[in-house]
Structure formats: structure tokens, C-alpha cells
Amino acid sequence: MICKHCGLEYPDDLEACPGCGTPNEDVEAQVMSAEERDAFDGMTIETGTEEEPRGDWKVYDQEDIWRQQEKAAKKEKWRSLWELVKLNGRLVLAAAAVILAVVLLLPTLVGFLLVGLGALLVWTFFRNFFIRW
């Protein structure tokens, strides 16, 4: 139990707070609305709505809600990071394909260019050689 006067936490079976001597009060649980529950810093118990009563219950603490919000924020952050990685992964693959094509095709193109220049030189040489005679 936590003393409402001084905030000291002590066992529930004591009749008064050992720190300040304030007697224990019997407190009944109160049903809160969703807005009150979300604004409340203490613990709340959810039992469903009047339209959908549930037989189960869950104890909420404000720290639990903050943890859930942090977990959702982290999940969203990782999801957006993954989307960025997928987008960049596609760009990297496209760049790699272009580089690979240039690396593989450039020697082939240079080879064709050299063969063409060689053929042009041979053609020019034979044409000039046979025209002179």
C-alpha cells in the first residue's frame, strides 16, 4: 500500500502508515471512462464497455501505456527505415546493373571499335595500294 499523505510504500496488512501514522482508508474501485483512464497516472482496470461487456480484465498503468506508445513508435520507425532500405536497395541494384553492364559491355564495344578501325585501315590501305598501281 502507498500512503496518501507521505507517499511511503508499506505492507497492506498494517493499520496505519509507519512513516507518518496516517490510518489506512478503505478505497472502493471506481469505473472510469476511456478519457479519464488515459489522463490518469495511476492504475486502472478495463472490463469492457456497456455495449460489449467482457468477463476478462486488464490492469493499466500509465507507464504501460507509455511503453505501448514507445513500442508503436519504434515499430513505425523501423517500418519507415525498412521502406527506405527497400527503396535504396532497388536503386543500388539498378546502379549495380548499370555498372555491371558497362564493365561487361565496354570491352566488347571497344573490341568491336578496334575491329572496325582495323577493317577501315585495311580497306584504306588496299584501296590506296590498288589505286596507285
Rank of each mutant, 00 (worst) to 15 (best):
V59W: 00
A95P: 04
L104A: 13
L117V: 03
M43V: 12
C20L: 01
E15S: 15
G118E: 02
E15P: 05
Q62L: 00
K74M: 09
D12C: 13
V31F: 10
C20G: 04
L113E: 08
C6E: 03
K4D: 15
D41Y: 11
Y10V: 09
D64R: 01
T22Y: 02
W57R: 12
E28D: 14
W123E: 08
T49R: 06
V122L: 10
W82M: 08
A97P: 00
T124Y: 15
A96Q: 00
E76R: 02
G48I: 08
M32D: 01
G42K: 03
A73M: 05
W78P: 00
R54C: 05
V110F: 12
L84V: 08
V92L: 07
P18S: 10
A97G: 01
L104H: 07
V31A: 12
G118L: 04
V102Y: 09
Y60I: 00
V85R: 05
W66Y: 09
E46A: 10
K86I: 03
L93A: 07
M43N: 11
K86M: 03
V27G: 06
A101N: 00
D61A: 02
V98R: 01
V103Y: 12
R54Y: 06
D41M: 13
L14G: 14
V98A: 01
A39F: 02
F129Y: 12
E83P: 06
D56P: 06
L114V: 04
T49Y: 08
A72L: 13
L121A: 10
L106P: 04
L106C: 09
G42Y: 04
W82T: 08
E15W: 08
A95E: 05
E46W: 13
Q30R: 03
